[in-house]
Amino acid sequence: MPGIRESRTVPYSAEQMFDLVADVARYKEFLPWVIATRVRSNNEEEMVADMVVGFKSFRESFTSRVTKRRPDMIDVVYVDGPLRDLDNEWHFTDLPEGGSRIDFSVQFAFKNRVFEALAGQYFDRAFRKMVNAFEERARDLYGSSSSSAQSVA
């Protein structure tokens, strides 16, 4: 299954980044290609949410189950939609010098292998754009810091 993994150091706490990533209802405000979200159920440990993504005339919706372990981990498992599979994990670790390290991975499989091969060519660029959108959202919500975020992929 194609996938990608990245680590970033950011000047925000693990708790702040956990809250930002767990706030699925607000994704349409800052994530590229997210048109709408609907949270079906949500508690401290688990959420089930629908998301509509689109680009130009392409539009698809899917459902995911989100397992939350505050403030360390968010695990997203694909439930239903146009893909065969989509899983991603977020791990948040506070750093002794301040800020936190975010480890993110995503794996996906399309039902159509030809489409999977085509999408795989653009996935890396789209993934990086999405990760950058989370960082920009953190700056908007929490302000900037003298320490700058950096990629350690």
Rank of each mutant, 00 (worst) to 15 (best):
N132A: 14
V76G: 03
A126C: 05
R125I: 04
E116Y: 04
F110V: 01
R70A: 06
I35M: 11
F92K: 13
I102S: 02
L86Y: 00
E89H: 04
T63S: 12
L95V: 13
R65P: 02
K68S: 03
E46L: 07
R113W: 07
R59G: 06
F58S: 09
A36V: 07
R65E: 06
P71T: 08
S64Q: 12
A133D: 09
D75L: 09
T67R: 08
V77S: 08
F127D: 05
D72N: 13
V53T: 12
G98S: 13
T67F: 09
F92Y: 13
E45Y: 11
A119D: 03
R101F: 14
N42F: 01
R40L: 07
Q121A: 11
P71D: 11
E46Q: 13
E60K: 04
R113Y: 08
W90F: 14
E116Q: 14
F58D: 08
M73W: 05
P71C: 05
F104D: 00
R113F: 07
N43Q: 03
F110D: 00
T93R: 15
A49G: 12
M47C: 08
M51K: 00
W90G: 02
P96I: 15
N112G: 12
E97D: 15
E60N: 05
K68M: 14
V52I: 10
G54V: 10
E97Q: 14
G120T: 07
Q121I: 09
A117Y: 08
S57V: 12
S61C: 04
P96K: 13
F110M: 11
Q121G: 15
F127P: 09
M130T: 10
T37N: 12
D80N: 07
R40T: 06
E97F: 12
S105E: 10
S61D: 13
V106D: 00
V66G: 00
K68G: 01
R40S: 02
L86S: 01
I74A: 04
V131I: 15
H91M: 06
W90N: 05
R128I: 03
A36Y: 10
F110G: 00
I74V: 09
F62M: 02
W90K: 11
E89D: 05
L95G: 13
D103C: 04
S64F: 02
Q121E: 11
M130L: 13
G81N: 04
A117Q: 14
H91Q: 10
D94P: 09
S105V: 12
F55A: 02
V77A: 11
D87H: 01
D103S: 12
E44K: 04
P96M: 08
K111F: 07
P71K: 12
R70Q: 08
S41Y: 01
A117M: 15
S105I: 07
S64I: 02
S41V: 02
S105D: 08
Y78D: 01
F108Q: 00
N112Y: 10
D80R: 14
R113Q: 15
T93M: 12
D94H: 12
F92R: 14
N43R: 04
Y122N: 11
V77Q: 08
S64A: 07
I74Q: 03
A36M: 09
N88I: 01
V131M: 11
V79G: 02
A109G: 06
